[in-house]
């Protein structure tokens, strides 16, 4: 464990908690892409199947459980409890355009052709594109509440910190996970445009982020 990975995990947890609390307290999921949250729940489900077969550490197990519980709790808020406020009109990204290529690639490019490994690879590839429905929804509505942009900021920051973690681990341990690194770079690139808008708009105190 290193400071980059730990702070990355903390940013990830903060992002998920920000979103959950925003929906819970405002009793509304307006502006939130339910599809992205479904994809994230799928990412955690396919990645954490080793929860019961491989014990890494207390921290690892606890964080996996917390991520899974919060992901499904957020999805249930969006699609059940506050479904009247769910804007399915604007959440129109065709997720099959993500799932099919990601599933195909995970069968082609993986470390070993076993169910657990293919599902893990699927979760890595899926995570790099899971935010696209949310980013698409923001471009469609042309705006995002500032709390939603803070959620996206921490979510983007978490994988950016993981890139630093991989540089560190390569330097310190010679550890290099090509699939995770390549996907992590792609994932972070998708946030670059958002980061630019976040720093130039939201942090300038304009509250809401409105797209040009």
């Amino acid at each position: 464990m290193n400071i980059f990975r730990l702070s990355g995990d903390v940013c990830h947890l903060v992002a998920i908690i920000i979103l959950f609390l925003k929906i819970w307290r405002s009793k509304s999921c307006a502006g939130i892409s339910g599809k992205s949250q479904l994809l994230f729940a799928l990412v955690f489900t396919t990645r954490y199947l080793d929860l019961f077969t491989a014990f890494i550490s207390i921290y690892n197990t606890v964080m996996k459980v917390v991520f899974l519980v919060l992901a499904y709790a957020t999805v249930s808020l969006i699609y059940f409890r506050f479904r009247k406020s769910y804007d399915s009109e604007s959440d129109s990204f065709r997720v099959e355009f993500l799932l099919v290529p990601v599933a195909g690639l995970s069968f082609l490019e993986n470390y070993s052709f076993t169910p657990l490994e293919i599902l893990w690879t699927f979760s890595i590839y899926l995570e790099s594109v899971a935010i696209l429905p949310q980013l698409f929804m923001i471009t469609k509505t042309g705006e995002a509440e500032s709390i939603t942009t803070h959620y996206l900021f921490f979510l983007g920051l978490y994988r950016t910190l993981y890139l630093a973690n991989w540089v560190w681990r390569y330097h310190e341990e010679g550890f290099f996970d090509q699939i995770a690194v390549v996907s992590g770079v792609v994932q972070t690139i998708f946030y670059c445009d958002f980061f630019y808008l976040y720093f130039t708009r939201v942090l300038r105190g304009s509250g809401k982020m409105t797209l040009p």
Partner: peptide, 10 residues
């Protein structure tokens, strides 16, 4: 190939 059996990252 990395030691991909142990997935120690979240």
């Amino acid at each position: 190939q990395p030691n991909f059996t142990i997935k120690d990252e979240l």
